[in-house]
Design a protein around this nucleic acid. Structure first.
Lengths: 226, 226
DNA sequence: CCTCCACCAGCAGGATCCGCATGGGTGTTC
DNA sequence: GAACACCCATGCGGATCCTGCTGGTGGAGG
């Protein structure tokens, strides 16, 4: 399970991250709200674990409200030293799904995180993928960036879908050949390069931040940051 | 929101039920696990609020396990006097979604219940259409009848989708021209007939009961019966 | 500086797909 | 029963669209 932990206390962060990883999950960590929001918005996580209070302008509640405003429904667990009922209610009302107060037992955190991850899109097939301001709608077979529709060919669509399903991760050429081309051998050509190029042309043209990144000697990766 | 409350303590039950109702929800109450399980299994609730310990053979955890075993994914909030971490973990692991210990503030219960109800299948777009043994999967763009895959061309797919979205209703040629061909005039040809014919050929061939029916002087209709 | 890797523009083959026309069938009406 | 209207099926031609390859260029890394 891919989990994003936003926590400024380094000690707590280390502890939680380690524990979740030992339970077999992938954990990304952000130390402040701004970075957390950015990551949460640009990559697909199964669960968000947020400290209620964070340094900088963006605290936990603010972060969730922003996400929800963007249509992001990723389940959120708040972690907080604020134990007052009012605080908890505030967190949940803002769009949080659970609220755990410090100090907490790690076993309970784990159980709650897994409970959150268990429910959401388990069974509900994803119908739209999102990376930063790029959206791909599986139903209408439509691609939009910053609200502007982008025409894409079938193969390009499959390619993009595969990249977006692994946003933030490197996708190797071999994987692409297997999954997008159904090739189980090396065609000895640069088919992939060509299609990636075409996709780039359509997606990143006219935008400052490119989304498709080359990982030399490895493959490609799609994500927001450079 | 439809909520099922399973709680043996009459006093707590009354208190919770009243509060939830005042918040605008519909509440059913069961005083023991057996009745609760029966209700939960037979009616559709948005959220279940379960006492962790219940009289009779069926306690809260048992109830959830049974439901989950039946494929029921209705969100569950446990209410319990057992505060030990182990107990909470047990409840969550059994398939619970949240765990609140008594005594609790009603405001928090309400917030948590609403958080649970907020998340589930709210707004799940239809991803597959079904008419008799004919299925159309919008995501994979796949058509199957009686389990056997049927290859369909893009335009045929759009045509079939439109017919199935209006299953049991007559679809006029004009509607089809508008919605499937984006024509806003009469092309004076039999384009539609041709495509319907092709679709019939693929769908109804080899099956006793045809699904696509002609409505003379009106249009077409898809449905199971003759 | 050299080498390798990746990028991109252009090209041409191919395949798919689509719409039309025709001829035949069936139901309806007089 | 004949004429008509509506609908069905098949084959064909065309056009678009898509795709993959080639080959030269640019840039990163060593």
């Amino acid at each position: 399970m891919r989990i994003l932990l936003v926590e400024d206390d380094a000690e707590v962060a280390r502890f939680v991250k380690k524990g979740l990883q030992e339970a077999g999950h992938t954990v990304e960590h952000a130390a402040n709200g701004r970075d957390g929001l950015f990551l949460a918005a640009s990559e697909g996580f199964d669960v968000l674990v947020l400290d209620r209070m964070l340094p900088g302008g963006v605290d936990g509640v603010r972060l969730v409200e922003t996400l929800r405003g963007q249509g992001n429904r990723c389940p959120v667990l708040f972690l907080s030293a604020l134990t007052a009922v009012d605080e908890r209610v505030k967190g949940l009302k803002a769009g949080g799904d659970d609220y755990l107060t410090k100090p907490f037992a790690f076993a309970e955190l784990l159980a709650r995180v897994e409970a959150l991850g268990r429910r959401p899109s388990a069974e509900v097939p994803t119908t739209r993928l999102k990376v930063a301001d790029l959206e791909l709608d599986l139903l209408s077979r439509t691609v939009t960036r910053a609200g502007r529709k982008i025409e894409v060919q079938p193969r390009e669509f499959r390619l993009l879908e595969h990249l977006m399903r692994h946003a933030g991760q490197v996708v190797t050429r071999t994987m692409l050949l297997e999954k997008v081309w159904d090739y189980h051998f090396d065609p000895q050509t640069n088919v992939i390069d060509v299609h990636v190029s075409r996709l780039r042309h359509k997606l990143d043209k006219g935008f400052d931040r490119p989304l498709i990144h080359t990982v030399r000697n490895a493959g490609y990766m799609i994500r927001a940051q450079a």
